[in-house]
Design a protein around this nucleic acid. Structure first.
Lengths: 155, 155
DNA sequence: GAAGATTGAACGATCAATCTTG
DNA sequence: CAAGATTGATCGTTCAATCTTC
């Protein structure tokens, strides 16, 4: 979910004395930062007709360089299979991917990038990279180190 | 959206030479950290029968200490009004809030915490605070300062 | 007409249940 | 029965269109 960016307005048992240090809980700072970045990614991708989710699937297929089964896509996206079913439905409706059957195992269905899908992915990757660079430039490498430590402690 | 936690497997133009420093783009580190925290919040709230969104609304009502109009809830939640309409539908169906009409202006509808809503909010706030404390304890105050700077630069 | 709320459609996500194939 | 994919339900979110009331 898109957690509200504003923390509790008047935290119940707010410990006074930290007046100047803006005691907004870490949790909110973190989520606010992440949502800001996500919003930028969404805006950049929207300009080329993609969502983050769609770009994610196209990226996986482009990286693989060959069609992937829907289960593989689900696993690599860390989501459930039914999610991919629907995402691929929409991508297919837009003509960006195509379902292809496996002739050996008829349970298996792969998603294949179409010509349009390859093009769209290229545009998406460009937009995505631009945001990434923009964000990276706002952050010093020492800040980055802190963030990495944070991630590893939280993960 | 719940952005995939894993960055690009083999970034296109990956600049070699930073081998040891795990060159996963900042963007991914940040979102991964945020999603980890969000997942913990979700799990903690689920245990008391709440989602992050529902807890958010209950929190606003509890903070206000009085019924709020649906528009006020939407504004303070940074979401569109229709979102609140449906959220309040579900909260009302669960008996946690109640819609109350305004007798002066018949367009206005307020959400009021029920007794059960007050109790549920208390449980949610406790669960929420526990996660907050847990996260805070994993982070030094100097790291916190970095994160705050990050937020302000990104916002 | 503008404001407050609702409804309907769509997207992205999850879960449970089902269908088909192995 | 397992595995792969789909369907249907629900949640949270947005947007566009509508209804009622000011």
């Amino acid at each position: 979910m898109k957690y509200s960016t504003r923390g509790p307005r008047a935290p119940a048992g707010e410990p006074l004395g930290e007046a100047g240090s803006a005691a907004k809980p870490l949790v909110f700072s973190l989520m606010h930062a992440a949502h800001t970045v996500e919003a930028r990614l969404e805006a950049a991708l929207e300009a080329v007709g993609l969502s983050i989710a769609k770009h994610g699937v196209l990226q996986l297929l482009a990286d693989a360089g060959e069609p992937l089964t829907l289960s593989e896509l689900a696993e690599q996206s860390s989501c459930v299979r039914s999610n991919i079913t629907q995402l691929v439905d929409r991508l297919e409706a837009e003509g960006l991917v195509q379902r292809v059957d496996d002739h050996d195992d008829r349970r298996i269905i792969r998603a294949r990038l179409t010509r349009a899908g390859v093009d769209r992915h290229a545009a998406g990757a460009k937009a995505f990279a631009a945001v990434q660079a923009e964000v990276a430039s706002a952050i010093s490498s020492s800040d980055r180190a802190v963030l990495d430590r944070l991630v590893s402690r939280l993960g």
